[in-house]
């Protein structure tokens, strides 16, 4: 009797959560995967209107020049942006854990861009920093006697976008690094100091190796962040998608929902892009687990 009552209680308490997992994740994921092997024009098309066409959707996206461009841009954001973000984040984390004053204030100020609306942040960058006439960047260059540039022009747009994105992202990875560094026991550094190791030696021989699993976390999160990169690209090219800023999710969005100039839609191909991006994430997880083994070191 009691166990039956208990079972009822467990079901009642977990059902809403299980239902939301089913409706929001399980069913859509399965359907998207199936959809990626079918010819589906409109997203709202019923399953009976789908026509099986094997891997044609995948062939279509992999032969699309826009998709190639999108992958190239994503890879560039991943590598260049990744190096910048993780270097700045690590630098700030090391500085803030070195016994600096006002640590809490600095930490909060650097993390700030992560809390405010990214749309507002992007708007500030585009409308102020990069503005050709009154923008901060051109005013600064002018003061140095250099000529200003049109940062939102085709040639500079990608880099303008990348820098703005990096600025906003650093704080988050910094917090994870700080958390990792603070968990390393102070005794290790004390012992190293007694043995005559200077700060830089300590950083490379103690901090870095012990931060291995933190690096793993950060690289994984950064990769997922890059794979789902969308908002900044949309903000830097709000009306028409441009080759300089296109990324896979933008390409997917255009393929599924159409663009202003192009009304042909292909939800099947969109699903294929989604599956490819999910595979990227799976590969990232797999590689990170293989390459950087979770250390058994207790510290």
């Amino acid at each position: 009797m009691k166990s039956k009552k208990n079972r009822l209680f467990i079901i009642a308490f977990t059902l809403p959560c299980a239902l939301s997992l089913f409706i929001m994740y399980l069913y859509p994921i399965v359907r998207t995967v199936i959809m990626s092997f079918f010819g589906v024009e409109s997203v709202t098309a019923r399953m009976s209107e789908w026509s099986f066409n094997g891997i044609a959707n995948y062939q279509k996206i992999f032969s699309s020049p826009t998709f190639h461009q999108a992958i190239r841009n994503m890879a560039l954001i991943w590598i260049v942006g990744g190096i910048l973000v993780l270097s700045f984040a690590l630098l700030f984390a090391v500085i803030l854990t070195s016994g600096i004053r006002f640590k809490k204030f600095f930490r909060a100020a650097i993390y700030l861009p992560n809390v405010i609306s990214a749309v507002a942040l992007a708007t500030m960058w585009i409308q102020y920093i990069y503005n050709q006439e009154y923008g901060l960047l051109n005013k600064f260059l002018e003061a140095l006697g250099l000529e200003g540039k049109n940062w939102m022009g085709t040639d500079m747009k990608f880099w303008a976008m990348l820098v703005a994105f990096v600025f906003g992202a650093v704080g988050y990875y910094m917090l994870i690094f700080i958390n990792g560094i603070e968990r390393i026991s102070g005794d290790i550094f004390e012992a190293a100091t007694i043995d005559g190791a200077n700060k830089i030696q300590q950083f490379f021989s103690i901090t870095m190796p012990l931060l291995r699993s933190i690096f793993k976390t950060n690289i994984t999160f950064w990769s997922i962040n890059c794979i789902s990169f969308f908002l900044w690209s949309k903000m830097f090219a709000p009306v028409n998608t441009e080759a300089s800023t296109v990324v896979p999710v933008v390409y997917l969005y255009d393929t599924v929902f159409g663009t202003t100039g192009n009304v042909t839609r292909d939800a099947g191909a969109g699903a294929a892009i989604g599956v490819v991006l999910s595979l990227f994430i799976a590969v990232v997880y797999f590689i990170m687990n293989k390459v950087i083994k979770d250390d058994d070191l207790e510290f």
Partner: peptide, 23 residues
């Protein structure tokens, strides 16, 4: 269920929007 919750957090939103849209 615990595993699904963690998996759901790492699934990109583009995987779920299309079926949700049609539903």
């Amino acid at each position: 269920m615990k595993f699904s919750l963690i998996l759901a957090m790492s699934i990109p939103e583009v995987m779920i929007i299309m079926p949700i849209y049609s539903l």
